[in-house]
Amino acid sequence: MKKESRGAVGERSRRAILDAALDCFTRLGWAATTIEDIREVSGASVGSVYHHFGAKEGIAVALYLDCLRQHQDTLKLQLEKATDAESFVRAVVIHTITWSRANPDAARYLIRMRREDAVAAAEPELQEATGGFLLEGINRLKAYARDGQLLKLPSSAYLPLLQGPAQELLRHWAGGRMELKPGIEKVLADAAWRCLRPEPTGRREP
């Protein structure tokens, strides 16, 4: 049997710690979770935990980035299939809801931890991780607008109109105040498209 490389062992250990951290933060809460809780669930040694992440704050940031990348990577796959502005808009909104429904612990973690000091302190790292992805999306929306497939708006207006209602719904859901009922993603996708689609040709002002 081929011996596992040192790098593979390290990555497996790192993955186990992140998975354990998400489990502990979900069950116990961020503030109440200890390194020992994470170590016990992951099966890793204390030395391994500190080697990979340092203190609990390091785990929090690494887990946040990991969940964010999972969301972005799967969204990219959906956006690659989009052939026009409408399918792009709908893909963003629908994926935001369906991914959260399929990955509730990760989605709630992203929502709840965004303004925690541990994550907020790593803002430059978060900007580096998301900046390129967001810029690519904005550029694609602007290109659709130039082609007449979307309303021509200031760049800063696209994301609030596109994702604002879905993000608000998810905040209530993460706080336990609302359910993600079947079909709600289509309702919000329809609403986003109505906000962003171009005015019908020949429309007259009353």
Rank of each mutant, 00 (worst) to 15 (best):
L75Q: 11
L75F: 03
L75T: 15
L75S: 08
L75I: 10
L75Y: 00
K76V: 05
K76T: 15
K76S: 15
K76M: 13
L77I: 04
L77W: 07
L77S: 10
Q78R: 15
L79S: 10
E80W: 09
E80Q: 07
E80Y: 08
E80H: 12
E80K: 03
K81L: 13
K81E: 15
K81N: 07
K81D: 05
K81H: 14
K81V: 08
A82Q: 04
A82F: 01
A82I: 00
A82K: 13
A82E: 01
D84I: 04
D84G: 03
D84Y: 02
D84H: 06
D84S: 07
A85R: 05
E86Q: 13
E86V: 04
E86C: 12
S87F: 09
S87D: 05
F88A: 14
F88Q: 00
F88P: 01
F88N: 11
V89S: 14
R90V: 11
R90I: 05
A91R: 09
A91W: 00
V92G: 06
V93K: 06
V93L: 14
V93R: 08
I94M: 13
I94W: 11
I94L: 10
I94A: 12
H95R: 13
H95A: 08
H95S: 14
H95Y: 10
T96R: 03
T96G: 11
I97Y: 04
I97G: 07
I97D: 09
I97S: 14
T98E: 15
S100I: 06
S100L: 08
R101D: 08
A102Q: 07
A102S: 11
A102F: 02
A102T: 03
P104F: 07
P104T: 08
P104K: 14
D105R: 10
D105H: 09
D105M: 03
A106H: 02
A106G: 09
A106I: 00
A107C: 11
R108Y: 01
R108P: 06
R108L: 12
Y109K: 09
Y109L: 15
Y109Q: 03
L110I: 01
L110D: 01
L110C: 00
L110N: 05
I111W: 04
I111G: 08
I111R: 09
I111F: 05
I111P: 12
I111V: 13
R112F: 05
R112Y: 04
R112K: 08
M113E: 05
M113R: 07
M113H: 07
M113I: 09
M113G: 05
R114Q: 11
R114I: 10
R114K: 11
R114A: 12
R114P: 03
R114M: 09
R115G: 06
E116W: 04
E116D: 10
E116A: 15
E116R: 15
E116H: 14
D117T: 00
D117F: 00
D117G: 09
D117S: 00
A118K: 01
A118Y: 01
V119L: 02
V119M: 03
